[in-house]
């Protein structure tokens, strides 16, 4: 049997679409083999990597992964820790040990450290098969967030918002002077001058909605220049 590609690279595929036929191809993420065919099991963009077929998702809720830096909200205070909402199907637990280096007396009031509704940046340290999640607050940049505003974006567009080595997000930061933290779970925290915050929200939403267009960096740069009047020095790539 002759190996044959049935759908071109970078095309949109829908679950059940026959991508390729022949045993010369291998199913990657988002695809599966049926007899000798490779079929799509997700909606997304086809990415052909040698003879491996992969699908880059365009939609879907956040599924927690180890080492992801996420923005979370305290939803409950437990006996010896806190429960966080991760903007996903599962909540996470922060234990006392991972919360602070201070010594916490037995029976101490834990709301001294985190109150319900507090927003924090934390890192996922463990995810079990049953999706029980542990997070930590010890690490560079992990802290409680005060002030600012929080917006939701599509989780699948987060890499684009961050850009190559953080190029996109630092460009927006430089232009608006806002502090931006992008969580892998699709929450973005923005803090700065109120009018600049509005511009930042617009810029982030623009990256989100046009994530797959070419020349997006230039477009966003032009937008920022128009809105802020500051000439955006392009973040130099190595």
């Amino acid at each position: 049997m002759v190996d044959k590609m049935l759908i071109k690279d970078k095309e949109i595929v829908v679950p059940g679409d026959k991508i390729a036929s022949g045993m010369g191809f291998l199913p990657g993420r988002g695809t599966f083999r049926k007899n000798s065919d490779i079929l799509a099991e997700k909606l997304g963009i086809l990415n052909v990597d040698g003879n491996v077929m992969k699908i880059v998702s365009l939609s879907g809720v956040y599924l927690p992964k180890v080492n992801d830096r996420v923005i979370a909200k305290v939803i409950d205070v437990l006996m010896s820790g806190w429960r966080f909402d991760l903007n996903s199907a599962y909540s996470a637990v922060l234990s006392m040990k991972e919360a602070t280096s201070e010594f916490i007396q037995k029976g101490a009031d834990l709301t001294k450290y985190f109150q319900i509704n507090d927003i924090v940046v934390c890192k996922i340290t463990n995810v079990t098969s049953q999706k029980l999640i542990d997070v930590t607050m010890s690490g560079p940049g992990l802290r409680k967030l005060r002030g600012g505003r929080l917006i939701k974006v599509n989780t699948n567009k987060v890499p684009r918002i961050i850009g190559k080595e953080g190029s996109m997000v630092s460009m927006i930061k430089n232009a608006t002077g806002c502090n931006i933290i992008v969580g892998q779970n699709g929450l973005v925290w923005i803090d700065g001058e109120p009018d600049k915050e509005v511009i930042t929200v617009k810029a982030v939403k623009m990256v989100e909605s046009e994530a797959h267009t070419a020349g997006l960096t230039d477009k966003v740069a032009a937008f920022l220049e128009k809105e802020t009047g500051v000439k955006t020095a392009k973040v130099n790539k190595k």
Binding site: V14, P15, G16, F32, L39, E41, K42, L43, G44, S57, L58, S59, G60, V61, N156
Partner: peptide
């Protein structure tokens, strides 16, 4: 369901 990004073997 496909639009929600869920894993499906077909429509």
């Amino acid at each position: 369901l496909a639009d929600a990004g869920l894993k499906m073997k077909d429509l």
